[in-house]
């Protein structure tokens, strides 16, 4: 019971104090963030109108709504953790994090919480705007939850990798930036992966986003039950296990490397 209370208290501290209160103290940033959250959906909607895509492929709006909502969740969650670690280095709090009795993995996992929490807002906003623009959702909650859980697990794995890289290289977030940009191009966010040349398609299969978005579209737009989306769930589970495994190993390596080299306080 006490362990649960302590874990909840830590989660509260990371999400509410370190996450929300610090974020909300930059008011201009908050306003710009909110605007940025839904702009992409309007861009693709009006592109669809301009090129008559909505007329010929009426499902396109649903396709891009789910794509943008969850692609943003994926890329933003990753950039948020990497940015967070970088910030702690610059503020000088990273030394105190490492002086605290937390394992490397706990430290990174708690630090990821804010990214996961805050990025749920634009996801929900995008889905709401999509619904207002005419998307008809037909949701199988169990399927959607299963895909989402695996999707978040794989995102967390990439989160850990991005955070570990920042710990080591003391630079922005190259992995996170790559994951963000590549996912836009390769993850099937605004066009189907089948439109890519065959050799590039194989690269996209290594991204959890590709399987996650297809699975979520099936679960949220066609109410597909779990057996019908097994083709997405299986590769997504394998990728989640792989990314989490690499992320955990790299986090431990980075943590002890900076403690050995004495670069914890360096930025």
């Amino acid at each position: 019971m006490r362990r649960l209370l302590v874990a909840l208290s830590r989660a509260y501290a990371f999400i509410t104090i370190r996450g929300y209160k610090v974020w909300a103290s930059y008011r201009t940033q908050v306003a710009l963030n909110v605007v940025n959250w839904v702009i992409p959906l309007f861009i693709y909607y009006f592109m669809g109108v301009a090129f008559h895509l909505l007329k010929y492929t009426p499902d396109y709006l649903g396709f891009i709504t789910v794509g943008i909502a969850f692609q943003g969740y994926f890329s933003s969650a990753i950039t948020t953790l990497a940015g967070r670690i970088r910030n702690e280095e610059l503020i000088g709090t990273l030394e105190y994090y490492i002086a605290a009795p937390l394992s490397p993995l706990s430290l990174m996992a708690y630090s990821s919480l804010w990214g996961l929490a805050i990025n749920a807002v634009p996801t929900a906003l995008t889905l709401a705007v999509g619904a207002a623009l005419g998307v008809r959702f037909a949701v199988d909650p169990l399927s959607a939850a299963a895909v989402l859980a695996l999707y978040i697990a794989s995102s967390l794995g990439l989160n850990l990798i991005a955070g570990a890289v920042v710990l080591i290289v003391k630079q922005g977030n190259p992995v996170a930036l790559f994951a963000s940009v590549a996912s836009n191009l390769l993850g099937g966010t605004v066009f189907p992966v089948s439109a890519l040349p065959p050799w590039l398609r194989y690269v996209s299969y290594a991204l959890p986003l590709t399987w996650g978005l297809d699975g979520l579209r099936a679960a949220m737009l066609s109410a597909a039950p779990i057996p019908a989306i097994a083709q997405y769930i299986a590769p997504l589970a394998a990728l989640a296990a792989a990314y989490l495994g690499v992320g955990v190993a790299l986090t431990r390596y980075a943590y002890y490397k900076i403690m050995r080299e004495g670069t914890v306080a360096m930025y």
């Binding site: 302590v6 208290s9 830590r10 501290a13 104090i17 610090v22 000088g92 709090t93 605290a100």
Partner: peptide
């Protein structure tokens, strides 16, 4: 360095207290 300037002293201490395994 090492404290969050944009939140209160109390919030800073509660945050670090939680880090050290204290309940809220």
């Amino acid at each position: 360095r090492g404290v969050y300037w944009r939140v209160s002293a109390l919030d800073n201490l509660v945050f670090f207290g939680a880090l050290y395994g204290m309940t809220l």
